[in-house]
């Protein structure tokens, strides 16, 4: 399926409009992570693989774990490590 991924924090500005449209083979968050890692290796040379492993994925209301299903609407957000306060 195709996922539209909103980019935040240190990942902003890596794609036009801070959004990435990514084809994903598979139906779980882990499959999205794998697709993102492959995209980053090809297009984001300054982003470390360790950072991508530390990123979480979320919908508008919940953080999803790697074993969970991708949402039917295909809209997700990537959350780099947080640093509020």
């Amino acid at each position: 399926m195709n996922i539209e991924l909103e980019l935040y924090g240190s990942l902003r500005n890596l794609e036009p409009g801070d959004r990435l449209h990514l084809p994903v083979t598979g139906a779980q968050v882990a499959d999205l992570r794998a697709a993102l890692v492959a995209h980053a290796e090809a297009r984001w040379p300054r982003v470390s693989p360790l950072l991508l492993q530390r990123c979480a994925f979320a919908t508008r209301t919940a953080v999803l774990r790697d074993h969970q299903a991708l949402p039917p609407d295909g809209h997700m957000v990537i959350l780099p490590p947080v640093s509020g306060g």
């Binding site: 924090g9 492993q53 530390r54 979480a56 953080v63 790697d66 780099p80 490590p81 947080v82 640093s83």
Partner: peptide, 12 residues
């Protein structure tokens, strides 16, 4: 510079 921060991903 972005602060290093805390991962929200339990797996990490």
């Amino acid at each position: 510079e972005w602060s290093e921060g805390r991962s929200l991903c339990e797996d990490a």
